[in-house]
Structures are given as structure tokens and as C-alpha cells.
Design a protein around this nucleic acid. Sequence first.
DNA 1: CTCGGGTACGACGTGGGACGTCGTTCGCGA
DNA 2: TCGCGAACGACGTCCCACGTCGTACCCGAG
Lengths: 223, 223
Amino acid sequence: MTDRDAALQARIVRLIHDRRLGPGEPLPTEPQLVDLLGASRNSVREAVRALRALGIVEIRRGLGMFVGEAPLRVFTPSLSFRIRAGEGGDVGSLRDLVEVRELLEVGLIGQVAGTLSTARLAALDALVRRMGEDPEADRSFHALLYESAGNALVLQLIQLFWDVYHDVEQTLGPPEDRAAEIEANHDRIVAALRARDAAAAQAAMRRHFTDVKARISRAVPAP
Amino acid sequence: MTDRDAALQARIVRLIHDRRLGPGEPLPTEPQLVDLLGASRNSVREAVRALRALGIVEIRRGLGMFVGEAPLRVFTPSLSFRIRAGEGGDVGSLRDLVEVRELLEVGLIGQVAGTLSTARLAALDALVRRMGEDPEADRSFHALLYESAGNALVLQLIQLFWDVYHDVEQTLGPPEDRAAEIEANHDRIVAALRARDAAAAQAAMRRHFTDVKARISRAVPAP
DNA sequence: CTCGGGTACGACGTGGGACGTCGTTCGCGA
DNA sequence: TCGCGAACGACGTCCCACGTCGTACCCGAG
């Protein structure tokens, strides 16, 4: 057969659906799958490996195989690779990535602006203060900002793109000290949110990404 | 070791980068990788299987292994699985998916509105006419619409979400005949684009997705 | 000289077996 | 009763053998 491997993967996925197995629940063991699927252990293992790479199956050594949650995080290596190996050098692909982030975040902030509690606004403000020393604060800021949208998918998507960007950004040459600029941009965002001004928040977010794109344009692809 | 497999994958990816291999170029053969990485053939094969699932490696039987392009399409199984196995039944996750599509497309159509040539507008119109019989026309419509944005990533992203939606939508019960509704929505979009009215185009797109979300809400999760 | 087919070769695909390592469980002994 | 170690079953790694697919080469027919 030409792609028996793909067929095996599909059969395992179907098995999960047919048995109504949810994330965290155990899958049949390797020997059981060998019997069920009528393939050798090697073939089963290779199919499971592919499913694990997609987050569909989780393996805990010594315990067994379990249904995964397929978090978008598993795409990080693939996306990073795609950006790095992208046509026209990294820069073009990275710009595309940032534009997708901008698209998502500008749209989202328009939705959540006006729905944020003062407590949440204070938490956002505290995160901005910590951005100087803690790189994670930036990530947390965007995560906390969109949490109230109630959309787990878009939340993970934004995290994914953030991770990939900061993964690839390191290959763009020596890091620039943009701490002040970044903090100012985020301050503007919080201010607009405080004013319950959706349009201003969107503008502030756009301005933030304009600076990010400028940083990319300045960077020269490594020889 | 705990995750020697992940380390092997990373080493293969590094090998690709170190050798400046671009999509389509050949990778070392299995035996060569066994030597280079100091792992057994099974381990190498399993690592390669994972990379293939991520689109990073492409395998052509009888020929060898090649660098892949990591198209977003490879995430279709994972995303479909995630939606189906999502918390709170399919409906909630599917709604999240559609909202992401809405976010992207409403933002994008605002960017491309006013930049479309009359030839392209005519092509879009022709696709709308074919939506009745050809399900692919819908997909092509959205692809053609955003082609001029010049962002390959977002284009593939929209295609990916479209594929996943139509994959999962089939499990939502018997298909409804919404042909007229769909055509009317797309007609409104094209009309707004013809008028070079970005705001109206965004509104029309939003209306389109409102109907899609309504279709989801009507659907009852299968018992 | 040209053309065509058959063979040889090297690529990946599949199957089977053996042994190691990790976690858990259970029973024995203090 | 408590604790520790052996047994068990999970996945991890490795090795070898054979099958299948594509290509390239060689050689003979025309």
C-alpha cells in the first residue's frame, strides 16, 4: 500500500471517536493496538508517533498512551520552521506572521474593550510595569487581555503566534533595547481600555504592531 | 532518557538549518541519519514520522526524504480532532472556530476592499453563481478574495479553518439547504466590494458569519 | 547509432524478536 | 502497622530480515 501509515493514523483516531474517549482517557496499549489494527508493533508505534506530534495522543512512559487535547502549542515547531525556511528569507514570512497577530488582536481588543473589570485593568497595568525585566509579562499581558473573550481557540492561537514570533525573532540579529517603546505602547493600550474607548484601543494596538513591524524591517537577514 | 525522541527531532531540524536546506531539497538517507545521529534506525524513523506529521519532512517512497514546506494544511487532523473532542461538545469549540474565521476575514476584507480589480470582482461574482452546485466555489471565493493581501500565511490559515469547519460541520446533523442564504450573503459582499466601501464589506462579512453561527446554534449535538 | 526492455541497486516499508527503563503495585518482612 | 523491595506491565531502544517502489544502467535488438 502507498500510505498505509496514514490509514493507520486515521483508524486510531476513529477508534478514539468510536469509543467516545475524551482527553486524558487511556488508549489501548501497544500490544492491544497491534491486535486491533493487525499491524506490526513498529507500524503502530510510527503511527502513534505522528499522532503524538499532532497532540492527539499523549504518551506517559511506564504508564501507557492517553488521548491528548491537541493544544495549538504543538504547532510551534512547524510554524517556526515554516517562518525560518519561508520564501524570500525569514523577513517576509515573519512580517506575514505579525500581520496575522495584528489582525487577530486588533479585532479582539475591539470586542473586549469596555468589558474589562477595573481589577483586570489593574492586573494588566501591573504586567506592563514588569515588562522591563520579565519577558513573560508581555506574553501574559496579551493572554490576560483576551481571556474575557471566552474563546479558548483564539487565545491559544495568539499564544502560539507569540511563541513563534519570539522564537524566530532571536535569529534576526542582536536584540534591540525597545523596552521603553514597548512599555509606552502597552500603556497607551491600557489607557484606552480604561477609557472604555474601543476605537482608541484598536488604534493603540495597531500602533504597537506598527513598531513591531518596523523592528523587523530594520533587521537584516543573517548572511 | 525521558524524551530522546524530541531531542532527535530537534537535531534533524537543526541539521536542516545548518545545511541551509530549503523545501524540496533532499535530506540524508535513513542509514546516513542513523550514522549522523548515533541512533537506531527505528528511533530515526520515529523521529522522522513526527516531523512528517508536522510537514517539516516529506517522504517519497523509493526516492528518499526531502525538506517539506510545512503548509498549514497538515494541522487539519489535529484541529478537527480538537473541535470534535472539545469541551462542552462540538458546538462550543466549533463556534470558537467560526469566530476566529470571522475575526480574520472581517479584518482582511477591510484591507483588500478598494484594491480589487474589476476583473477580480467579476471572477468573485462568477464563483458566487457556482456556489449552488460546487461546494469548492465557496472555498475558492474566500481564497481569491484575500489573495491580493499578499500574505501567504493568513491565506493558508483561512483555508485551514475553512477545511476544518466543513469537516466538522458534517457531524452536526443533516445538512441544511442554505444555498440561497449563502449566495445572498456573498452577493452582498461582492456588491460592497464593487462600491469600494470597506465598512459595508466588513458589515456584509459579519452578516455572513452571523448566519453561519446561527446554523451552528440550531444544530443539536448527536446523541 | 538508436531505442527499448530487463536487471541491479538503493531508497523507504513492514514485520518480528530481544532487552532496557520507568512507574506502579503488591507482598513480604521488620 | 509501616516500609521497602521484588514483580509486573507499560513504553523505549536496538537489531536483523525481507518486501516494495523508482531509478539508472546495461546490453542487445533493430
